[in-house]
């Protein structure tokens, strides 16, 4: 564990908690893409199936369990408890355009043609694009609540820090994982436009709104 990965994991955790807390406190999921949240629940479920087959550390197991539980809790709040506040009309990204190609890619390009391995690869690919319905929703409505932008910033920062973690691990441990690195790069690039708006608007106290 290096400093980049340590901060990244807690940034990821912060993002998840910020979103849950925001929905719970405001009793509303307005402006939040339920589709992105379902995709993240699928990402965690398919990636952390190894909870059943191998034990790495108490930290690893606890974080996995927390990520999975929180992602399901978020989906529950959006689609069940606060369903009336869910903005389905604006959450119109066609997720099958992500899930189907990503599934095909995971079957074609993986480290080992085994079920758990393909599901792990699928989760890595899917995570890299899972935020697209949320970004699409913001581009459609033209604005985002400030708390939602903090969520997105923490989520983007997490994968950007993992890139530094992988550079570190390559130099000091000699390991690299091309699938994770390429997908992580794609994922980080998708946030670049948002990072720019976050720094130039939100951090200066302005609301994130896009020109019409």
């Amino acid at each position: 564990m290096n400093i980049f990965r340590g901060i990244a994991d807690f940034s990821h955790l912060a993002a998840i908690i910020i979103l849950l807390h925001k929905i719970w406190k405001s009793r509303s999921c307005a402006g939040i893409s339920g589709k992105s949240q379902i995709l993240f629940a699928i990402v965690f479920t398919t990636r952390y199936l190894d909870l059943l087959t191998s034990f790495i550390s108490l930290y690893n197991t606890s974080m996995k369990v927390i990520y999975i539980s929180c992602s399901y809790a978020t989906v529950y709040l959006i689609y069940m408890k606060f369903r009336a506040t869910y903005d389905g009309n604006h959450d119109s990204f066609r997720v099958e355009f992500l899930v189907v190609p990503v599934g095909g890619l995971a079957v074609l390009i993986n480290h080992d043609f085994a079920l758990l391995e393909i599901l792990w690869t699928f989760s890595i690919y899917l995570e890299s694009v899972a935020i697209l319905p949320q970004l699409f929703m913001i581009s459609k409505t033209g604005e985002a609540e400030t708390i939602t932008t903090h969520y997105l910033f923490c989520l983007g920062l997490y994968r950007a820090l993992y890139l530094f973690n992988w550079i570190w691990r390559f130099y000091f441990e000699g390991f690299f994982d091309m699938i994770a690195i390429v997908a992580g790069l794609v994922q980080t690039v998708l946030y670049c436009d948002f990072f720019y708006l976050y720094v130039t608007k939100v951090l200066k106290g302005k609301k994130l709104s896009l020109p019409a």
Binding site: S54, N60, Y67, G174, F175, D177, M178
Partner: peptide, 10 residues
């Protein structure tokens, strides 16, 4: 290519 070693990541 070191794949197993990265399984400890989240």
């Amino acid at each position: 290519c070191g794949r197993q070693s990265l399984k400890d990541e989240l």
